[in-house]
Design a protein around this nucleic acid. Structure first.
Ligand SMILES: [Mn+2]
Ligand SMILES: [Mn+2]
Ligand SMILES: [Mn+2]
Ligand SMILES: [Mn+2]
Lengths: 220, 220
DNA sequence: AATAAAGTTTAGGTAAATCTAAATAAAACG
DNA sequence: CGTTTTATTTAGATTTACCTAAACTTTATT
């Protein structure tokens, strides 16, 4: 199937929203995700249905078909491999790569994708801790991880971040939080859900609830 | 300036045609180069003039402005660096990379471009022997090279090819001709301008005038 | 259940990049 | 130099991906 860049971006966003909640994706949610208007989403939904990439009935929301999921995984694979390339080979930092990968992901060549993967040592996670689908679309668990907000252990390791915004990632950089960083929870403040943290050899600091929800962790 | 992919492709093609002959670029020549129709070229010419990237007056042909040339060199830089990446890092062969670079060149990030260049060891020529502009748009001679067709020496080294078509490059692969290959001219046949060649340790073979015009050489 | 609110779709429009066919200008030719 | 040929431009459509405003459905609230 020959998809435009716009169509690919829709497919990827639908996949993402379906991942977060298993229901149908609503027109409004998709419009918000893609920073566009609901009317535009309806237009595109008709087109993608025509191409059999989504199931869609008026007012009933959107779901990817099997074909649509396959397509989404290919795009996600390319996106995350390029992010690895930028970070591991070109020394970009994790907050810079999402935007660039947003463009590079649209170069559709299986040969390029597979060669790139090989060149990078067939990585299985991207710089934000997200799993990379393999050439057949198989991907490790799509993030059943616990957020720092919900985790109950005292000692935790950062395994992913669920928000790619430059602002958040730069904030984490400033605080010294990256993938693999080990955190000690000093205190959880009930009244605003902020958390006081400590990283070895550094002064303690406090993060907001919003930030703690974006940091995925595992106990150590 | 924020250019669309279509606009960038026009700018690059205009640069190429201006390089070949110093006159104004004609509507028809540009349409042929871009595999589009003259009417579309006229439309785009108006737009690029508006953006001050070309000088253009009805019926008078097209020339890049200084700004247009600068833009063209940036695109060419990205194109050729990606070609180097594909050949040197991902083991593509020279006939495969042009199409891919045609897409990758449109990712506009100076930081990415410069990091990529550095990663590749700041190469000065691409896999087809074409010079790569540096970060300031400085580029080695734009091919004053002699074609095998015109060269008079008996022993020659291949320094570039002036045709990126897959068909030609695959033909050259089959004959064992690549950049740096040393050729002995056995015979030049006047009646059809074909040339009999020999590469060390291989049987002699004959190439057509068309092929010999696309192979750029220097005496050794 | 009736009404209000929220969500979604339709109608109608715009801008970019293309096209074909017709009109016009420039160049080449006898 | 006038005429034919070639090159170029204009006029008018089409497709894609958007938009706003209005209409319509669904859902939530009294
Ligand atoms: Mn994208
Ligand atoms: Mn990522
Ligand atoms: Mn291109
Ligand atoms: Mn090249």
């Amino acid at each position: 199937m020959n998809l435009s860049i716009a169509e690919e971006n829709y497919i990827k966003s639908i996949y993402k929203l379906e991942e977060d909640s298993p229901d149908s994706v609503t027109t409004n949610a998709l419009a918000a995700e893609l920073d566009t208007k609901p009317a535009s989403v309806t237009d595109m939904a008709k087109k993608l249905k025509e191409k059999k990439l989504i199931d869609y009935e008026k007012y009933q929301g959107i779901n990817l078909t099997a074909e649509g999921k396959k397509t989404a995984l290919q795009i996600i694979r390319r996106h995350r491999l390029w992010e690895c390339f930028l970070v591991n080979k070109l020394a970009f930092s994790w907050e810079e790569v999402h935007e660039l990968a947003e463009e590079l992901e649209h170069v559709r060549s299986e040969k390029l994708t597979n060669r790139l993967s090989e060149f990078l040592g067939n990585p299985t996670t991207d710089p934000h801790g997200d799993p990379i689908p393999d050439a057949h679309g198989k991907m490790g668990k799509p993030r059943i991880q616990t957020s720092l907000h919900k985790a109950r252990a005292k000692r935790l390791e950062v395994v992913a971040v669920s928000d790619r915004s430059t602002a958040l990632l730069e904030f984490l950089n400033a605080k010294g939080i990256r993938l693999g960083t080990q955190l000690d929870v000093i205190e959880r403040y009930e009244f605003d859900n902020s958390i006081e943290l400590k990283i070895k050899n550094q002064p303690a600091f406090t993060i907001s609830e919003q930030v703690s929800k974006s940091i995925m962790v595992k106990p150590i």
